[in-house]
Nucleic acid binder design. Structure first.
Lengths: 208, 208
DNA sequence: GGAATTTCCTACGAGCTGGTAGGTTTGTCA
DNA sequence: TGACAAACCTACCAGCTCGTAGGAAATTCC
């Protein structure tokens, strides 16, 4: 995509330290377009305007590149979610807190679609190490939701029994909304979707 | 896995017509163990105790093999779901009908984990044609759920606005339960999970 | 200005994949 | 029994991937 007829210019003399973030940017771009299987060292090098050995000077192998990318984007998402949350989390009813959390999460997903994709979009088709890391990131989120839910439903009759299932259902609904926003391109806004989910939770989870 | 020290015996003289289902069985096995990327023509041939050209005598190329497998397993799932549904679908309250549908779906998923995996477990990492086919199968299910929901909530205030979102949420919860059964290995039974989801739907979806 | 070092590039090897050509075995049918 | 066709196998090619060796350019430091 850079230049076809003429030979590409020699890349700037930056060194691994400054080159690494640029390679991660390129990898994110390639991944968004082609998924895990299509994210080869060659394609990342091309996207960064560099040759393959340069990539290997910055990352030992393909798995390390993908893990580094995953870690950076996961951190990016977490930071964004935290900064979108209200300053004082103890304000409001439990249901409002759930709404706040969902809104923060979905807003983050909608405004960082590429980061979202790599963490939630494609755990299959990756190497075992990467795939495991993705599962861990998702489990981290589900655990957070479980804790929120625990506060939101203090008087539930049989907490041990169904709470994990409910937390998983909430997580899956949240992911579904994020998918609508990022992949399918719905016309709803993140707060609208968050409201729908929180209403379902408020009305339905007490029933169980 | 067949024989390492001694040379494998020549395979039986069956011909493409009788060989095809055996190859699909082998492909399903390989896919369950290694996913789309790991389902190579060589590995399928090995699993079937046959050489690669035999596979190419039955399927023109890799995509056709995967599409044929997908079609067979999708049909398998549909047949199983239909046969698990009650004979007369007009009996019972709408909420009971939702419960029946969910139970049928989840029971099918739990008893046909390999078929479920290939249709719902890994749309990413596959060739575009295959990936598109998987999306179509899922859309087919979501549409069915949307119709069920439409009957179940006749007096909803603003049907056009939120019904697609609710249908998507229901589908994602159903998939989450199936994933718990097939992938994570929960101790809940399909009817138990179906009941939880139907209660959430009954209590929460009217709220929206 | 010139040497030393850092950084990048060209070129290559091993291994695996989809896919094919052509010979060999097995079964059929006269 | 013997010819013929159907089915299978060995051996191979092109292409792509990861990953590496060693040489050319840019920078730094004296």
């Amino acid at each position: 995509m850079v230049e076809d007829t003429e030979k590409r210019r020699r890349a700037a003399h930056l060194g691994p330290e400054r080159r690494r973030p640029m390679l991660l940017d390129a990898a994110l771009e390639v991944f968004s377009a082609n998924g895990y299987a299509g994210t080869t060292m060659q394609s990342v090098a091309d996207a960064a305007g560099v040759t393959k050995p340069v990539v290997y000077d910055c990352f030992a192998n393909r798995d390390e590149l993908l893990l580094a990318l995953l870690a950076r984007e996961e951190q990016h998402l977490v930071t964004s979610i935290v900064s979108a949350l209200p300053a004082d989390p103890s304000i409001g009813t439990p249901e409002e807190q759930v709404l706040d959390g969902l809104t923060a999460f979905l807003t983050t997903a909608a405004t960082n679609p590429q980061s979202w994709r790599i963490v939630f979009g494609a755990q299959y088709g990756a190497a075992p190490a990467v795939s495991e890391r993705v599962r861990a990131a998702r489990a981290f989120l589900v655990e957070g939701l479980r804790l929120t839910l625990l506060k939101s439903l203090p008087g539930v009759t049989d907490p041990d029994a169904n709470l994990p299932v409910l937390a998983e259902l909430l997580a899956s609904m949240t992911e579904a909304c994020a998918r609508m926003l990022v992949v399918d391109g719905t016309d709803r806004t993140p707060p609208e979707l968050a409201k729908v989910v929180s209403q379902v939770v408020g009305g339905g989870f007490g029933n169980v």
